[in-house]
């Protein structure tokens, strides 16, 4: 197997059309990933926000992290066996796959949001409450925006994991990029397997770059510290020093009656 054979595989027009063409497999893979992340976020955001905001039931986060240790493939078969008889149609395979992927996505999402809120400066939270914000306002206007960088890190790592692991859906006869791995293995077509892996890796990379761009755009520069270093050194010069101060006139003799 050489770069040339890989190149030949990718440039074969047959790979770019039809139900088992790259565009369709890619779309399926993206669909599994998107569905998983949406469900994962729907679970992790409220739960993580609540645990972080109230400081209660922190063991939920630890417990969720322990779940990462469960092998995904084993879990997939177990869930399939359990769900399969209950549902006819294709959903009998889709649901177990999504369940497994969601279980994989929730822990990083949850710990990201929770850790983000936990790390908010207690003084800022205190000030927010002290100025009369309700608990909901403190959460949405202070805690969540400040938690954004860590939450997005959680989202990035969840996305990477889900994209990589969504390949297992193919093992229960669903589509996605995993098909190239499973089918390649079955037919000993190693070129196809390598090319499938490359596709998964490229997809993961692109997704990560997009999320990184989102992070740049969404996180307040006051938190991300972008350009803060430069501006800060400027502040010490133009800010305080150059402002003529009526109170602290340095000429001692003309300063009337010092107090205290």
């Amino acid at each position: 197997m050489s770069p040339a054979t890989i190149w030949a595989w990718f440039t074969d027009p047959a790979q770019w059309s039809g139900a088992d063409g790259i565009p369709n497999r890619l779309a399926e893979h993206l669909a599994y990933t998107a569905i998983t992340l949406v469900i994962g976020l729907l679970i992790a955001i409220p739960l993580g926000a609540w645990v972080g905001h109230t400081g209660r039931l922190r063991w939920l986060v630890t417990g969720a992290n322990a779940m990462r240790a469960v092998p995904s493939l084993g879990l997939l078969f177990a869930v399939s066996m359990f769900v399969g008889p209950l549902i006819q149609s294709d959903l009998a395979f889709v649901i177990p796959s999504i369940v497994v992927l969601v279980l994989l996505a929730v822990p990083p999402l949850l710990s990201g949001i929770y850790a983000g809120i936990e790390s908010v400066d207690p003084a800022a939270r205190d000030a927010a409450r002290g100025m009369g914000m309700t608990g909901w306002q403190v959460l949405t206007r202070v805690e969540l925006p400040c938690a954004l960088p860590l939450s997005l890190s959680g989202l990035r790592s969840a996305t990477l994991q889900v994209i990589a692991t969504a390949t297992i859906a193919a093992s229960v006869s669903l589509g996605g990029l995993g098909r190239y791995l499973i089918d390649g293995l079955a037919s000993r077509d190693y070129v196809q397997m390598v090319c499938g892996s490359i596709l998964v890796a490229v997809l993961a990379l692109v997704a990560d770059l997009l999320l990184a761009a989102l992070e740049r755009y969404a996180v307040s520069p006051g938190i991300s510290g972008r350009s803060v270093g430069v501006a800060r050194s400027r502040s010490s010069r133009t800010g305080e020093a150059s402002r003529p101060d009526p109170v602290e006139a340095p000429r001692s003799i003309s300063t009337a009656s010092p107090t205290t």
Binding site: A123, A127, G132, I223
Partner: peptide, 22 residues
């Protein structure tokens, strides 16, 4: 409580500014 607090200015030690806001 919210009404009470909004009716008085509260300055905490170390300012407690919101880092994500200008």
């Amino acid at each position: 409580v919210a009404e009470l607090r909004r009716g008085m200015g509260y300055v905490i030690q170390h300012a407690g500014l919101f880092p994500h806001r200008t």
